[in-house]
Amino acid sequence: MTGPRRGLLVLAVLGVLGVGAAGIWFVAAPGEHASPVAAAAPRPTDSTWPGLAAGPSAAAPVTPSAAAPAETSAPAAGAGGPAEPVAAPFVQNYAGQPGVKPLKPLPSPTGTHYVRPNVDGCDHNYGGITQCVPWTFPAGTTDKCAWLAGHGFKNLKVAATDRQRLDRDGNGIACDD
């Protein structure tokens, strides 16, 4: 390939690149060239926070003083003319569970359905009722008192029995020895 020819090739390649880059720029910067949205629509009203501004949700009664709702009128069914027939709910036939047997019906109860008093997983033998010494400490807890101290428990009274043997000195306060 001779010098001038190669020169032309280089020119051509760079030219294509340059025009391409400029083209990409034009395409990538549409903001200034976008055609206007030709919508002469009512001004947006802020119905989301009725305390702040009036809006179309005139039914939200916190703003009884709401300005005229900015709504386009839709033909109201039944207003004057014959009422349009209303669609019945379209329900699909899903999840029939063919072959799955329902659980056996239970008889009407004669007594209380028992639920353990410590339903919340807390050992209420310790501290106030709002506190929650775990009934079961997380696996790997070797020192329950250290765990409790590390989780913000202080001055833990023994409220009933020392079920987890946390009151080693028997003074009625857990984990203080």
Binding site: A41, P42, P44, S57, A70, T72, A74, F90
Partner: peptide, 23 residues
């Protein structure tokens, strides 16, 4: 995006409700 208008705020099942938007 702005919801510029809404055909009422009471919507019945199985209906089409018009809104206008800004884009």
């Amino acid at each position: 995006p702005q919801i510029l208008s809404m055909a009422g705020s009471q919507w019945a099942y199985g209906t089409t409700k018009q809104i206008t938007v800004d884009g």
